[in-house]
């Protein structure tokens, strides 16, 4: 009995960790998606963030500098994406696909140039744990919730903040309006382009940081293609979470839990087909989209450019 409880506790601790990059990118995606931008380039943005984070941490020998670099580089990728889809009005989906292909090429190439081929990756500083006094001594949930990597707390904190921004401030109101009916927002005096630019840049920064958590939090080095679909899972989490920060938190934890179990199964070398666990987020998202579990309600102007006649 004790063993099972222990196992569950360990899995849940791991869950918070595996869920964090999904949550960070997912929150980033909410900002974009709610403003009408479907960025399937988050996968690539995360990968670039993962590389930038590890390289930044390596150069400055400080993990937080790495995170900062990842955020900035993610923001730059977001700005480029924003320019292409907002100013030039290129197709969002195809541009996203291009960013993903570009990201694989860029990170792999840079990794080989900067860290060299055939050498084992250098150890870089990584994110440490913060144990909250007293709270972490609470049985079971203490170790679970209050003895985590510092980035986990930050990611969790973003959930209520984002919720508050969306529903209690004019910033959130503008974002929601722009994503549903950009022309109405424009006539009401909202600068549609500005809102879309900033949500894309800010959201991509979070995606970059989410990626950096993979290379500086979960692992402490960069490996090629280390994001491995987590950007798409984040997208899935946003849809499954019905574009709501709390929903996305729930979805991230759910999807992260599958991931945590899967890693454990693979590590044990067990024969249990872990692949089905990996499929779960995707299957759930499809059923959610089809309206089979609850009803999702995407922003009306998703993936549509705003063309203003002047």
């Amino acid at each position: 009995m004790e063993n099972i409880l222990n196992l569950i506790q360990n899995l849940l601790i791991a869950d918070f960790r595996t869920a964090t990059p999904i949550l960070l990118a997912g929150i980033g995606l909410i900002y974009m998606y709610r403003a009408g931008i479907v960025n399937i380039g988050v996968e690539g943005t995360m990968l670039i963030g993962a590389f930038a984070g590890s390289y930044g941490a390596y150069i400055f020998n400080n993990v937080w500098m790495g995170i900062l670099v990842a955020g900035i580089v993610g923001g730059i990728v977001g700005a480029i994406f924003a320019f292409l889809i907002i100013t030039i009005k290129a197709d969002q989906i195809v541009t996203g696909v291009a960013i993903n292909i570009l990201a694989i090429g860029l990170t792999t190439t840079l990794n080989r140039i900067l860290f060299g081929v055939n050498t084992s990756p250098p150890e870089i500083p990584s994110i440490g744990k913060i144990s909250l006094p007293y709270l972490s001594e609470i049985p079971f949930i203490g170790r679970l919730l209050f003895n985590q990597l510092s980035m986990v707390y930050l990611a969790l904190l973003l959930v209520p903040i984002t919720y508050y921004i969306f529903y209690k401030t004019t910033i959130g109101l503008k974002i929601r309006a722009v994503g549903d009916h950009p022309k109405a927002a424009d006539t009401a005096g909202v600068n549609v382009f500005k809102v879309r630019y900033w949500t894309t840049i800010f959201g991509s920064m979070l995606a970059g940081i989410g990626g950096a958590f993979l290379s500086t939090g979960i692992l402490s080095f960069f490996t090629e293609d280390m994001v491995a679909g987590r950007g798409f899972i984040a997208l899935a989490a946003v849809i499954f979470g019905n574009w709501n920060p709390w929903g996305v938190l729930g979805a991230s934890l759910l999807f992260g839990f599958g991931d945590a179990i899967q890693i454990r199964i693979q590590a044990m070398g067990s024969n249990i087909p872990y692949q089905f666990l990996i499929m779960v987020p995707y299957l759930l998202t499809i059923t959610a989209l089809a309206g089979l579990v609850g009803k999702v309600n995407p922003p009306k102007a998703s993936a549509e450019p705003y063309i203003k006649e002047e």
């Binding site: 109101l173 929601r176 309006a177 549903d180 009916h181 109405a184 009401a188």
Partner: peptide
């Protein structure tokens, strides 16, 4: 009308 159906009258 330049109204956003999902939002409230106030919003």
């Amino acid at each position: 009308f330049m109204l956003i159906p999902r939002l409230t009258v106030i919003e």
